[in-house]
């Protein structure tokens, strides 16, 4: 989901050079989602109890590992001064190339609209019932939302104590 004008989809989720659009935690979360554990995983295998148990345990371990985001091991990509300069130069050259097009793109085309503007403008105003409907809906929504609070349930970062 994009921001305010929300027409842009997240199309930059692939593996790329880290830039301003690359997700910071993308890969880890991706892994976790790709490996759901279903009951089939356990039932379909023949009963070699010892190895089976071991592999189940391994799977649980692996699953937990995937679900945990190790904040300390994250590769925080800090930018050096020269990297900033390189990027600024790169962006300005790209802008210079597409700059001409941007100017024409900024002027959106209006729809053709109506052939009888005066008739449309002179038409019946919005009914008072509709105005009251939206007024009360907006007021109750604002009221309902004022009661919404984030419940802080558990710590986001957990320290593992290695014995």
């Amino acid at each position: 989901m994009g921001c305010c004008f929300g027409k842009d989809e997240d199309e930059y989720s692939g593996e790329q050079e880290p830039d301003e659009r690359s997700p910071l935690l993308g890969n880890q979360i991706g892994n976790a989602i790709n490996r759901p554990v279903t009951s089939d995983d356990f039932e379909s295998q023949p009963s070699i109890t010892k190895g089976d148990e071991q592999s189940a345990l391994n799977r649980i371990l692996h699953q937990t590992e995937n679900n945990v985001i190790d904040v300390s091991a994250l590769d925080s990509h800090t930018m050096e001064q020269h990297e900033y300069m390189d990027r600024a130069r790169h962006y300005s050259t790209r802008l210079a190339i597409v700059g001409g097009n941007l100017r024409t793109m900024r002027k959106p085309v209006l729809p053709i609209g109506t052939t009888v503007p005066q008739a449309v403008l002179a038409g019946e105003p919005i009914s008072i019932a509709d105005i009251q409907l939206i007024n009360s809906a907006a007021a109750t929504a604002a009221n309902a939302l004022s009661n919404v609070k984030v419940q802080h349930k558990e710590e986001l970062v957990v320290h593992f104590v290695i014995p």
């Binding site: 209006l110 729809p111 109506t114």
Partner: peptide, 25 residues
């Protein structure tokens, strides 16, 4: 009062009118 706006032939028409709905409140 209200603003009513429509588009016609590459022009935008705006009319400011008193808001006098026909139905009783």
């Amino acid at each position: 009062y209200m603003f009513v706006i429509t588009i016609s032939n590459h022009k935008v028409y705006v009319c400011k009118r008193k808001y006098l709905p026909s139905e009783p409140i």
